Amino acid sequence: MLKLAAANEDRVSLSVRKTIDIALTALKEVEAEIAEGALGAEIERAVRLILGLKGRVMVSGIGKSGHIGRKIAATLASTGTPAYFVHPTEASHGDLGMITREDALFAISWSGETTELASLLAYAERFAVPLIALTARRNSTLGEAATEAMVLPKVTEACPHGLAPTTSTLIQLAVGDAIAMALLEARAFGAQDFKVFHPGGQLGAQLRQVHEIMHREPQLPLCAVGAGMSEAILTITEKGFGTVGVLDAEGRLIGIITDGDIRRHMEDRLLEKRVEDVMTPTPKTIAPDALLAKALQVMEDKKINVLFAVEDGRPVGIVHMLDLLRAGVA
């Protein structure tokens, strides 16, 4: 039984690796077609067409291409390009009214002969709606009807029978994501724009800024250079952040003292020292308008739990890892 189980595991591992291998090969073929073939120019024209729209991108497809289309539409919409998915069957039963002359139709079909797309193609031609096609056959009905046709290389499906769409849907999705990112960059769609469309969940939390959750005066644990360590310890205890910031005569943050620093100096006549003798100079800080995701990255990279937020070198706030946890970032 053990030998049989091991043999089955080997077959599973081999099958999985083979599928990934086929997928990587297909993506390399798409990359080569973009760099050296016609696909690169076709994608660029499609992107320029979308950038020039006054309306929306109406994505459509059936079966597995339809599932990919839904994801592409969602990615476009969340990255600054208004987009909807319209089901081709529902379109022929009234949803064609969703599509206006200011929109563009983005139709996905591997064969280019999907009969369910017929009413959409006819509608696009009748009302002069630009048609972007993503297909593997240039001479197909879809490819020939398109204003801009993006023709994918014919790749081997991972399915051993060559039937289940696997590799083909992967490269459809890859090209769709590439188009979405090209549009994002062309529109200079930034993190704060992204935040508008992603207010919920951990992603929304990461797109919040430090100033939205940081603690301000009078909660800041601060003391002036020249102060004794007894004052620093009292401040750490009172404020509860496990640290105290040391300020120079002009109010700039020049160092911090943490609980760890205190423990390391306990046997070294700690209470007779000044804060500058114990502090860690030039501490890591963050700007108040930095994203919480950036604050989390800094804390994790530096293995610290607290960051002072500074402007012109002066502390204006403090954020603790617990604040990030409460905000749903970490």
Rank of each mutant, 00 (worst) to 15 (best):
L117S: 09
L220G: 04
L234Y: 10
G61T: 11
A249I: 10
L307R: 02
H87Q: 12
A293I: 00
T135I: 08
L53Q: 10
A205F: 02
L253D: 05
E102P: 04
R48I: 00
E300N: 15
A180T: 09
R70A: 01
A249Y: 07
G37T: 08
H265L: 09
G112C: 11
L105H: 06
E148K: 00
K3N: 12
G66D: 01
G66H: 03
A26C: 10
G245N: 03
T166V: 08
A122H: 14
R48N: 10
V306N: 11
T79C: 05
A23Q: 15
G242L: 01
P315V: 02
F106T: 04
G313Q: 05
G40L: 07
L307P: 00
F127D: 04
L27S: 09
T156R: 15
G37E: 07
A164C: 05
G204N: 08
Q192V: 13
R56H: 09
V310M: 03
A107W: 04
P165Q: 02
L121H: 13
H198K: 05
K154I: 15
V30E: 01
D301Q: 15
G176W: 08
T25V: 11
E33K: 12
G242D: 02
R45Y: 01
P153F: 10
A104H: 02
V246T: 05
D323W: 08
E267S: 11
A224F: 09
G61F: 11
L2G: 15
L173R: 06
E267W: 12
R269V: 00
F106K: 03
V210L: 00
P315D: 02
R137M: 13
M279K: 12
A327I: 02
V244N: 02
V151H: 08
L120F: 12
G37M: 08
S168K: 09
A38M: 06
K195L: 09
L222R: 06
I50D: 04
L4R: 15
T100C: 01
G260R: 14
A287M: 12
R216Q: 13
G94I: 10
V129I: 15
L324A: 07
E148P: 00
E31G: 12
E276R: 10
D261L: 12
Q202C: 10
K54D: 13
G69I: 08
L271W: 05
E90M: 09
K154H: 12
T79I: 06
D177N: 14
A327R: 04
V298Q: 08
V306I: 13
L27Y: 05
L51D: 00
I254V: 08
A6K: 14
A146E: 01
D301A: 15
E238Y: 00
A327G: 03
G204R: 05
L39M: 05
H198L: 05
T89G: 14
E29S: 12
M279V: 11
H265E: 13
L291H: 11
E42T: 00
A136K: 14
T141C: 09
I213V: 15
G63V: 10
D248A: 02
G112N: 10
L296Y: 10
R216D: 06
Q192S: 15
L324G: 07
G251K: 02
K154Y: 10
G97L: 06
L51C: 04
S230Q: 14
